[in-house]
């Protein structure tokens, strides 16, 4: 009797765990599909990144000595702005077509649905930015020592930006013109990431150990990964529930 009870309990917990993961994966798959079918949304931030970086030598100075000094900060600032650019639409279409209502009314925890959405957002914006960044580093004559740290710091940094930015996107999703407000809410939260991200690259270029700043970025990411979905889920509920 007790063994069968225990068995049924185990079965119940197993089935809920499976459905939890299947929710996570089904949201993940769906979001990836949508992203790949609306490629303009995906290409936009990269194009912005590319355009601004190529204009920098024209606007400032083509001299390698000047550019290489500015490169770490410039690359980071532009990457951050490109991320910000992509945030506004993160929950917008789901809000407008009613998917968000269904997600909130789901018996699955909103936390995991949101987690999957933000992960896909990073995969389709932050990750491509990170991958092209070293290439653009060449355009800005970033010293070779800076490439690996730039890559690592952007990897951790853009992921953090996606998670933190999603909080702002969730808060402003019910506003028709939430773009400006979104930037105002998010910018102060982005500043620490920018400071540690840019200094990681600068330290590397200057030949100083950059492990500590990278560790701080890693810490930011860990915190954002675990805690931001809670805030995002709460903000989404608030936006939809009026």
């Amino acid at each position: 009797m007790s063994s069968s009870q225990a068995e049924s309990q185990v079965n119940a917990s197993r089935s809920s765990a499976t459905s939890l993961y299947s929710t996570l994966f089904s949201v993940f798959r769906r979001e990836l599909r949508i992203a790949f079918r609306q490629q303009s949304d995906m290409i936009n931030p990269i194009l912005f990144f590319l355009m601004v970086v190529t204009m920098m030598p024209l606007g400032i100075s083509p001299q390698a000595s000047v550019l290489s000094e500015l490169a770490p900060g410039l690359l980071w600032v532009i990457a951050l702005l490109a991320c910000l650019l992509s945030l506004d639409g993160l929950f917008r279409s789901d809000y407008e077509d009613g998917t968000l209502e269904q997600c909130i009314l789901s018996t699955q925890p909103l936390y995991f649905i949101v987690l999957a959405k933000v992960m896909v957002h990073w995969l389709t914006t932050g990750l491509p930015l990170t991958l092209v960044a070293p290439l653009l580093g060449v355009l800005l004559s970033l010293p070779t020592d800076g490439f690996v740290p730039l890559w690592l710091s952007l990897m951790l940094g853009t992921a953090t930006l996606s998670f933190v930015g999603a909080i702002g996107a969730a808060l402003t999703v019910s506003l028709r013109k939430g773009g400006l407000l979104l930037s105002l809410i998010i910018m102060p939260l982005y500043v620490p990431v920018l400071i540690f991200g840019a200094s990681t690259v600068r330290y590397a270029v200057e030949g100083v150990a950059y492990g500590s700043t990278l560790a701080v970025l890693g810490g930011f990411f860990a915190l954002a990964f675990v805690l931001a979905p809670l805030a995002i889920a709460g903000a989404l509920r608030m936006s939809v529930e009026e």
Partner: peptide
């Protein structure tokens, strides 16, 4: 608002909504 995504096929839409 039905929660139906325009860029997805009926099969994908329904499977997601039902399993959600």
């Amino acid at each position: 608002l039905a929660g139906v995504k325009q860029s997805l096929t009926p099969r994908e839409n329904l499977q997601f909504l039902a399993n959600l």
